[in-house]
Design a protein around this nucleic acid. Structure first.
Lengths: 135, 135
DNA sequence: TCACAAAACGTAATGAATACGATAAAATGT
DNA sequence: ACATTTTATCGTATTCATTACGTTTTGTGA
């Protein structure tokens, strides 16, 4: 997803356009990997000195709710990345740099037969390690 | 894993026996599901009034390190459960009560072919939802 | 039973995330 | 263009889980 697509989604949901939001989106559009709220704050600081935590977190959660970002818990800290909306898949995640690689394998179909009487709402399949550059 | 097996593991690693440790272990031996540090603290409080956070967390991490417990992050809070050591498997986890059900399916073999140049260190496959009792 | 290493206590500190009243800014209708 | 309304942001305080640490207590092996 690119910045324009994301801004369109925002507008469709009736949310306003601001310079900060565009900058947040372009941060994630450029970084094709999982980043933390702190990473984003450090990126924003130079241009918007004194930007508040509220703004960072509110927008991160808003963007996730409307489907612009996706998130995962990595050692106790929430990480965010631009959502890849084209099809269902999972991620390899580099422990060092947060880089992600798409995994096509998804075992949910076979798993469903194992969970007949359970109400499945969600699932998480992540592989962790080091990417070629970080090895 | 039962309490005696766990105590044996502790002794093998040269750690000491204490009443608190046995109680912590019997808590997890009884509860066949993911529990938080707070859950454990509430269980210990009546018998050991004034037990400290240090004791709780130190033992939880120790037990995980020697392979007595396994842990996962669930909405920003670490959850622990007795490790089922017999064979590799994953879990369905109930969002309400933390109950777990073993899943035999593990897609790592096929995934490895997708990640030739990546150093795989770990993986997580969890299914979330409601167990029959909580629906 | 004595000495020493490990465990626990009590409490303070850290760090991520959330909350909130006040202010500012963007969209909308006239 | 202007006023109105709605949303966004600021500044800061608070919550909550977790970690840290100096001191005291307690197992354990000689």
């Amino acid at each position: 997803m690119n910045v324009d697509e994301a801004l369109t989604i925002l507008k469709e949901h009736g949310y306003k356009y601001t310079g900060k939001r565009e900058d947040i989106l372009s941060f994630f559009a450029t970084e094709d990997r999982y980043r933390t709220a702190k990473d984003l704050l450090q990126y924003m600081e130079p241009n918007y000195s004194g930007i508040s935590f509220d703004t960072i977190y509110r927008n991160l959660h808003l963007f996730r709710e409307v489907g612009i970002l996706e998130s995962t818990d990595l050692n106790g800290e929430k990480h965010f990345r631009m959502k890849c909306a084209h099809h269902h898949h999972h991620h390899f995640i580099c422990k060092d740099c947060g880089l992600t690689k798409e995994i096509e394998t998804c075992p949910m179909e076979t798993v469903k037969t194992e969970l007949q009487s359970f109400a499945i709402e969600d699932h998480k399949f992540e592989i962790y390690g080091l990417c070629p550059a970080c090895q």
